[in-house]
C-alpha cells in the first residue's frame, strides 16, 4: 500500500509541474491555435538561469538560507523568461498571424532549435547539477516518504494555478483573454487590444514555465539544454489530454498524466508479468492520450465540437 501511495505522491509532484507547463501551451493555443513548440525551451532556460544565478550568489559568498537563494534565482529567471516569451511572439509568430497555418509551427520549431543551441553554447553540453541548498528532510506520510521540496512544489503549483484562474476569471485582462480566445475579430471590434492580450498571454505562460523549469531541476537535481524537449512534449500531451485551450483541462491533464505515468512505471512490470518493464514509462503518456482521444476527440474537458454543416 505504501508503494502505491508513494507512486501517487510522486505522480502528483510531477503532475503539478506538467500542469504548470501545460497551462502555457494551452493559453497560447486557446488564443492563437498555435502549438508553441518553443515553450519547453523557456522552461529549460528558466531552470538554467536560476541555477547559474544561485551558483553566482554562492560564489560571491552570499550567505543566505537555501530557499531565499532559490527565490533570488527565480527573481532573475522569471523576468528573463517573460522577456524571451514576449520576444519570441513578436519576432517569430506575430508576422505570421495571417500566414498558412503550418508556417508559425515551423518558426516555432526553429526557435526551439535556436534556444537549445544557444543554451548549449552558454551552459555546455553536460548536465548541470542543481545546487544542494534545499533542506532534504523526509516526512513520513502514512508509510510514504515525502520531502519538503515535494510539498513545496505541489503547494506552489496550486497557488500559481489559483492565481491564474483568478486572473482569467476576475480581471479585465482575463476577460480580454477570454474574449480573444472566443473570437479575436469581434474582441478587436469591441476595443480589446489583441496584440497586448497575446503578448500578455506569452508573458504569463513563460513565467509559469520558468517556475516549472526550476521545479523540474530541483526535483531531478539537474538540468540540461535538451531537457525542455521531453518535458515540453509531456506537458503538451497533458494539455491535449485535458482538452487543449481549456485552462482547467490543462490542470486535470497534467495531474492525471503525472499520476498515470508514475503508477505505470511502478506497476507495469507486475501487470505484464515482467514482459514490459518501467523502461516503457514514456509510452504510457501516449497510450493514455490515444485512448482518451479515441473516445473523446476533444480531450477530457474539451468542448464537444458538434459537426456543423
Amino acid at each position: 500500500m505504501d508503494i502505491f501511495l508513494q507512486q501517487i505522491i510522486n505522480g502528483l509532484v510531477v503532475g503539478s509541474i506538467y500542469a504548470l507547463i501545460a497551462l502555457g501551451y494551452t493559453m497560447v493555443y486557446g488564443i492563437m491555435q498555435l502549438i508553441n513548440f518553443a515553450h519547453g525551451e523557456i522552461v529549460m532556460i528558466g531552470a538554467m538561469v536560476t541555477i547559474t544565478c544561485i551558483n553566482l550568489l554562492i560564489g560571491a559568498g552570499v550567505n543566505l538560507p537555501g530557499p531565499l537563494l532559490l527565490l533570488a534565482g527565480l527573481l532573475m529567471a522569471i523576468p528573463i523568461s517573460m522577456l524571451l516569451g514576449f520576444t519570441i511572439e513578436r519576432v517569430a509568430y506575430r508576422p505570421l498571424r495571417r500566414a498558412p497555418r503550418l508556417a508559425p509551427l515551423i518558426t516555432a520549431i526553429g526557435v526551439s532549435i535556436v534556444l537549445q543551441q544557444v543554451a548549449m553554447l552558454i551552459w555546455g553540453r553536460n548536465y548541470r547539477p542543481f545546487p544542494q541548498i534545499l533542506p532534504t528532510t523526509v516526512h513520513d506520510f502514512f508509510g510514504a516518504a515525502v520531502t519538503d521540496l515535494q510539498i513545496a512544489i505541489v503547494i506552489l503549483s496550486l497557488v500559481l494555478m489559483a492565481g491564474l484562474f483568478w486572473l482569467i476569471e476576475k480581471t479585465r485582462l482575463g476577460r480580454a483573454m477570454r474574449a480573444t480566445a472566443q473570437n479575436p475579430e469581434v474582441a478587436g471590434l469591441m476595443g480589446v487590444n489583441i496584440n497586448t492580450v497575446i503578448s500578455m498571454t506569452f508573458i504569463i505562460g513563460s513565467s509559469l514555465g520558468a517556475v516549472a523549469g526550476v521545479m523540474v531541476a530541483a526535483n531531478y537535481d539537474q538540468a540540461h539544454a535538451y531537457m525542455g524537449f521531453m518535458i515540453g512534449l509531456k506537458a503538451f500531451t497533458a494539455a491535449v489530454l485535458g482538452g487543449i485551450g481549456n485552462i482547467g483541462g490543462a490542470v486535470v491533464g497534467g495531474l492525471l498524466l503525472g499520476i498515470i505515468e508514475s503508477l505505470g512505471s511502478g506497476y507495469l512490470g507486475d501487470l505484464t508479468g515482467g514482459f514490459l518493464g518501467s523502461h516503457y514509462k514514456d509510452i504510457f503518456a501516449f497510450v493514455v492520450l490515444i485512448g482518451v482521444l479515441v473516445f473523446r476527440p476533444s480531450g477530457l474537458l474539451g468542448e464537444r465540437v458538434a459537426e456543423r454543416a
Partner: peptide, 9 residues
Amino acid sequence: GLAMITIML
C-alpha cells in the same frame, strides 16, 4: 534554426 525562422518569415 535561424535559417528556418528567416525563410518562414
